[in-house]
């Protein structure tokens, strides 16, 4: 008689799956990056709260880079088109990434924007993420560097309150320094907090109004771009 083991009609299984939920975005981000690298294009992602000055900083950088690099700008915006119109008025190819209710850009949206961009004619893409200091941290886009823009008008605790955003940053811009005194916020304290989280983080205080610090930001981003071109 051959022994037979029959599964009972109802059986409970507890099996290992080990499936990453961030993997889908990470994979698309890697594909974006490979496509950019293939064309010698550098993408830089700008993150920061609403009103920190991301759009203004990008317009100032466009002015600085326009004559030496072929630029494109992707504007992430939940609903409005003011930002993308402002950048487009500078004569730079732009793509609006409308997330509608989404609180962050993801690699899929950026991949679609890349399809609408002639990568043979572009050296540098500046990507403006959705105004949010939390959600975008979890979603890499395929950029070569991530910039976090924080402004003194947001108060003295922005770095402490959003550590994850700064842990993943390559460059921190402390903006609106012309208002630091009236706001009673010490730029050095924000910089110290950023360095507590990540000692080698490059921090540049700027004022898009007076132009202070903008050359330093441009130089840092240019260095990243050059490293991409020759990679």
């Amino acid at each position: 008689m051959i022994p037979t083991i029959q599964a009972s009609p109802e059986e409970t299984y507890d099996i290992e799956l080990e499936q990453s939920l961030l993997q889908a975005n990470a994979k698309l981000a890697a594909e974006n990056r490979a496509q950019l690298d293939h064309h010698g294009v550098t993408a830089i992602d700008f993150m920061g709260a609403i009103g920190s000055g991301k759009t203004t900083l990008i317009t100032r950088l466009v002015e600085k880079f326009k004559d030496q690099l072929n630029l494109a700008v992707f504007n992430g915006d939940a609903t409005t088109v003011d930002d993308v119109n402002l950048i487009a008025s500078q004569g730079v190819p732009t793509v609006q990434l409308a997330t509608v209710n989404g609180c962050h850009l993801d690699a899929n949206l950026v991949g679609k924007a890349l399809l609408k961009t002639d990568l043979k004619k572009v050296d540098l893409i500046l990507i403006e993420n959705i105004g949010n200091l939390i959600c975008p941290a979890e979603f890499p886009l395929g950029s070569r560097a991530r910039v976090v823009v924080v402004s003194v008008t947001e108060g003295p605790y922005m770095v402490k309150k959003h550590p994850h955003m700064f842990l993943g940053a390559d460059l921190v811009v402390i903006n609106k320094t012309d208002l630091a005194e009236v706001m009673g916020v010490k730029v050095a304290d924000l910089a110290r907090d950023a360095h507590t989280l990540k000692p080698d983080l490059k921090v540049v205080p700027t004022s898009c109004k007076t132009g202070a610090g903008l050359d330093e930001v441009a130089a840092a981003l240019l260095a990243v771009t050059k490293s991409g071109v020759h990679a």
Partner: peptide, 13 residues
């Protein structure tokens, strides 16, 4: 510390 994974799934057949 960056992971977010489904570790296991428990079900009845």
């Amino acid at each position: 510390g960056h992971e977010c994974e489904i570790k296991t799934i428990k079900y009845v057949t």
